[in-house]
Design a protein around this nucleic acid. Sequence first.
DNA 1: AGCCAGGTTTGGC
DNA 2: GCCAAACATGGC
Length: 289
Amino acid sequence: MKVRHRNAMLSITGLNFDPQLSLIDSAQSFLWREHEGRYYTVLNGSGLCLESVQDGFVLHPVNEAEVEDYLHYFDLARDYEGLVGRYAEFPPVAEALAKLPGLRVLNQPTWEVLVTFILSANNNVERIRKLTWLLCEHFGEPVAADGLQLRSMPGPAALAAVPEAALRALGFGYRAPFLVETAKRVRDGFDLGALSELPYEEAHERLVTLSGVGDKVADCVLLFGCGHASAFPVDVWVARLMEAWFPAVRGLSKLKLQRASRAMLGDEAGIVQQFMFHCARCGIMGLGM
DNA sequence: AGCCAGGTTTGGC
DNA sequence: GCCAAACATGGC
């Protein structure tokens, strides 16, 4: 892999990266959008454009000082090529890994993952994306990116100030009070930054004290927003798939299925979970019924 | 019309 | 600790 930075452009080559899959279709982030073949988002308050090139991608505008942050965001320190080999003892896992060679698990800002996955509860991907967009459109700050007008995700203080009724009127349903209450907790000092430093178990315990955050959403926040690669979110798709492929976990409750899977798949359980999730949801692999 | 979607909360054993 | 029901919304 090769990393070069010049003229506010960060180019990363020598890796397999599928932006449509990683940024949009895999439903780990709901904050990127595609426009005429390029991908746009707001990250840390500034607009960002991503463009695919031959064997990698180019980001702009990027300051020299931000380069390390982006390397982390795209999880570039992890050996994705070697995943298939490391999970060879679990053939269904290795198969899912082999089918999606351009997928990477992003390290997103904790707050953004927390908000979007509170919205994910008992919801579908397209509507999560729509509600996320509404949140930015109505309560975020305008940001220019490569000539496009985008809007940032509102921060904790801004979201805490939104009346629950305003969210209800926009179609957020019963998630409206969860969002506002959690925003107040964060605004008033709940330490999101500590979650990345704490051991998995303790970080998980803290997260589920937030309104609208249960075991599954907590695992999504830990995996996508806190660098806890062992967190193993169990949604309906992953539950079906694990039960189909691993007889040992059949009939377990969601929480026990999560614990058993995490114990079985180890310190990169969450990384491979993302490959399995996308395979199951898009019917790429049969569920072995 | 009824079921489903990257579930959580609440209340009852 | 485990279980059922309620919860908003929109697509099929």
